[in-house]
Simulated scan of single mutants.
Amino acid sequence: MITKIINGVSFELKEDFDFDFLSEYGRVFTVFYKQDSGYLCFGVQDENKKLFLKMAGAATLESNVSIDEAINRLQSTVSVYEDLRHPKLIDMIEHKEIKGGYLTVFEWFEGECMGKQYGFFGKFISLPLEEKLGIYQDILLFHKHANECDYIAIDFYDGCIMYDFITKRTMICDIEFYRKKPVVNTWGRMWGSSRYMSPEEFQLGTEIDERSNVFLMGATAFQLIGGGIDRSFDKWQATERQYLTALKAVNAEKGDRYQTMNEYYEAWNKA
């Protein structure tokens, strides 16, 4: 293990890497290096703006994939971000090969991540109900858009939700596993947080379709507005009609859920 220091910011790697490319974008003010994805992420700033840089190629401490796999996966995300451009999705500005790896460059968003690993989950859950309903509406709008672009949302969870507590803006990030339809479960237990995953995402050979994303949106409602995996009405903070709508969405049987994202979206807004 080695410790690197760039512009006074330190982080750890398994082995050294050439980070000369960073100076092109400004001074590093923060580094995210403890993800298991194999990516290394930097916040950089020049005289005019901040940027978020995500790169693959360095040997990160907690990676659960090979360096080549991380590079190939990061390259494959480019088309996903380009296809799904949306006002609620972090904008990819640039992507390119670097010495020993690959780099993607995003706009910087002045917000906090809901992911439990970042320490702000409790702050999200403690927000007033109306604010949480607004965040959820933004999440619904983006996934309605993704569905209209023929994409299935895979591995969406707390860590994909960012929120600026001052301006009350929501943004979506980390959509790298979203895939074009049709999608079949070839893994058994797919990527993702079990709190958000439909039963078919644990079953080898099953189709992951629009009804799977209906389940995802229902599970997201329970994470934000209810008791998480405890889907009892006692833990629910909104109306009974909204509760029953979300509960139908997370039915274990596909045929008993809302059959399309539009159907769920309309039912939720009516509720």
Rank of each mutant, 00 (worst) to 15 (best):
I2W: 00
T3K: 00
K14M: 07
F17K: 03
D20G: 10
L22I: 13
Y25S: 02
G26W: 07
D36W: 04
V44A: 05
D46T: 05
E47M: 12
K50W: 02
A58E: 02
A58T: 08
T60H: 02
L61E: 09
V65T: 02
V65A: 03
V65C: 08
I67W: 01
Q75W: 07
L84F: 11
I93Q: 12
E94M: 08
E97V: 00
G101L: 11
K116F: 05
K123N: 08
K123G: 01
I125L: 12
E130R: 13
K132L: 14
I139H: 06
L141F: 04
F142H: 11
K144N: 10
H145A: 10
A146L: 13
E148C: 05
D155F: 08
F165I: 10
F165G: 05
T167E: 15
I172D: 01
C173A: 12
K181Y: 07
G188A: 09
R195N: 11
M197K: 11
P199L: 01
E201G: 04
E207N: 09
N213W: 15
V214T: 14
L216Y: 14
T220I: 06
G228Y: 01
S232P: 07
R241E: 12
R241C: 08
A246K: 06
A249L: 13
Q259T: 13
E263K: 14
Y264S: 08
